[in-house]
Computed example of a mutant assay.
Amino acid sequence: MKRLALPAFCIAMIGFASCGNAGKTEEKKDSLAIGSENKTATEAPANVLTDTEKAEGWKLLFNGTNLDGWRMYKNKENKTWSAQDGTIHCTGSTTDKSDMRADLLSNDQFENFELVADWKIAPQGNSGILYLVTEEFEAPYMSGPEYQLIDDENFPEKLEDWQKSGANYAMNPPSKLAAKPIGEWNHTRIVLNKGHLEHWLNGEKVVDTEMWTPEWTKNKTTGKWKDYKGYGVAKKGHICVQDHGSEIWFKNVKIKEL
């Protein structure tokens, strides 16, 4: 009986261990499944509005398929902008400075608004999102304030603080550097409501200022814009994305009028 009892005990222990491992295997499978579900849940479809966003008054500025709703600044001819793989894409070149490069302009104009967009830029790249743009001048930056987009770490020239990502270009430097490493998507949010201006980058508020105040006028008239009388004058204008010769991508471009 003793000789029989030991094998029986071992068999029982093996069975118990197997059951335990099976439980762990099932637990691991469940864990993987949950992780997969979470990943899927967080990867929302690009260039679409949720029911909540629709109810809140958001509108798509980019449909993910073509550039309907956009045109070139002053209707210039262009060969650099296209809808590509669900993004607004601008080709980059270090040598092409031809007249076939132009900034991309929204057809519609906006006054008080909240604008969001996702973007990523090529190494050493430079671009921007402009707003309150009018078409009375040679270039959009002569009228519209600019939310700066740039490779903060690798840009080949020394950058002033007011040139770094999230800045109100040449007016207000960002309070912190919040851009992600090159190659990753960044999330930008611009809020302009009756002169109160906020720039957000990846969930961080980096600019909070008031337009058209005595302090704002002082910054304009003593800085880079002192010779640009039309800069920041318009209270309503177009949204514009800048072709600065760098490759850049945009998606999830949405706006809500306030």
Rank of each mutant, 00 (worst) to 15 (best):
L4G: 01
L6W: 14
M13L: 15
A17N: 11
S18Y: 02
G23P: 05
T25L: 04
T25Q: 06
E27H: 13
E27Y: 11
K29N: 02
L32W: 11
I34K: 00
G35W: 07
K39W: 05
E43Y: 10
P45L: 13
D51Y: 15
G57P: 09
W58N: 12
L60R: 08
N63H: 15
N66L: 11
N66R: 14
L67A: 13
M72A: 10
Y73G: 10
N75G: 08
D85A: 14
T87A: 09
T87S: 12
G92A: 02
G92K: 05
D99L: 13
S106C: 09
E114G: 08
A117R: 02
A122H: 04
Q124N: 06
L132D: 11
V133T: 09
V133L: 09
E135D: 13
F137K: 10
F137E: 12
E138R: 10
M142Q: 13
Q148T: 00
F155S: 03
P156T: 01
W162G: 04
W162N: 10
Q163K: 00
Q163I: 03
K164A: 07
G166E: 01
G166V: 06
A170F: 02
S175N: 03
K176H: 00
A179L: 01
K180V: 11
K180W: 10
T188L: 11
H199P: 00
N202K: 01
K205N: 15
D208H: 02
D208V: 06
W212L: 14
T213W: 04
W216E: 04
T217N: 10
N219M: 04
Y228P: 05
G232D: 13
A234I: 05
K235E: 09
K236A: 11
C240E: 03
V241S: 05
S246W: 04
E247G: 09
F250L: 04
K254G: 13
K254E: 15
K254M: 14
I255T: 12
L258I: 09
